[in-house]
Simulated scan of single mutants.
Amino acid sequence: MRIGFVGIGVMGKPMATNILKSGYELMCYNRTKEKISDLKDKGALVADSVEELIEWSDTIIFMLTTPEIIESTLIKNIKNLNIYKDKTIINMGTISPSFSIKLSQELSKYDARYIDAPVSGSKNPAEDGKLIILTSGDQELVKLHNSVFESMGDKITYCGEIPKASMIKLSVNLLILHMMEGFSEMINFAKKGDIDLNSLFEIVLSSQVSNDLYKMKYKNYISEEFPVQGSVKNGIKDLTLIMKTANETGAYIPLTALNHQMYLKAKDLGYEEEDFSAIIKVLEK
Results as ranks from 00 to 15, higher is better:
residue 260 H to G: 00
residue 273 E to K: 09
residue 186 M to C: 15
residue 88 T to N: 08
residue 189 F to I: 13
residue 202 E to F: 08
residue 209 V to P: 01
residue 18 N to Q: 10
residue 237 K to M: 01
residue 169 K to A: 06
residue 166 S to Y: 05
residue 84 Y to T: 03
residue 201 F to V: 02
residue 139 Q to W: 05
residue 116 D to T: 00
residue 109 K to R: 12
residue 7 G to H: 04
residue 145 H to Y: 05
residue 275 D to L: 07
residue 29 Y to E: 03
residue 283 L to F: 11
residue 199 S to G: 12
residue 43 G to Q: 08
residue 272 E to P: 00
residue 189 F to L: 15
residue 125 P to C: 06
residue 151 S to H: 01
residue 167 M to S: 15
residue 194 D to N: 15
residue 270 G to C: 08
residue 217 K to R: 13
residue 120 S to E: 07
residue 41 D to L: 13
residue 234 N to F: 08
residue 205 L to I: 03
residue 103 L to A: 09
residue 68 E to A: 14
residue 156 I to C: 04
residue 281 K to N: 08
residue 73 T to V: 14
residue 247 N to E: 15
residue 285 K to I: 11
residue 120 S to K: 06
residue 244 K to Y: 12
residue 50 V to F: 05
residue 1 M to Q: 10
residue 151 S to D: 11
residue 68 E to M: 12
residue 205 L to D: 07
residue 250 G to L: 11
residue 267 K to L: 00
residue 8 I to D: 07
residue 224 E to G: 00
residue 61 I to W: 05
residue 138 D to W: 02
residue 10 V to H: 10
residue 164 K to M: 15
residue 273 E to Y: 06
residue 194 D to Y: 11
residue 160 G to F: 09
residue 217 K to A: 06
residue 136 S to C: 08
residue 159 C to P: 03
residue 44 A to P: 06
residue 121 G to D: 02
residue 115 I to H: 03
residue 177 L to G: 00
residue 83 I to L: 09
residue 220 N to E: 13
residue 278 A to Q: 07
residue 272 E to I: 08
residue 25 E to Y: 05
residue 166 S to T: 10
residue 71 E to N: 13
residue 157 T to H: 11
residue 268 D to M: 13
residue 252 Y to H: 12
residue 17 T to W: 06
residue 58 D to V: 05
residue 276 F to G: 01
residue 60 I to R: 02
residue 275 D to K: 04
residue 184 S to F: 00
residue 100 S to M: 07
residue 98 S to C: 03
residue 122 S to N: 10
residue 284 E to P: 04
residue 145 H to T: 06
residue 267 K to C: 02
residue 251 A to V: 15
residue 139 Q to D: 09
residue 277 S to L: 05
residue 129 G to W: 00
residue 136 S to P: 04
residue 103 L to P: 05
residue 71 E to W: 15
residue 226 F to A: 05
residue 228 V to M: 14
residue 31 R to V: 09
residue 87 K to F: 11
residue 203 I to A: 15
residue 181 E to S: 12
residue 190 A to P: 04
residue 142 V to N: 02
residue 124 N to K: 15
residue 8 I to Y: 01
residue 13 K to A: 10
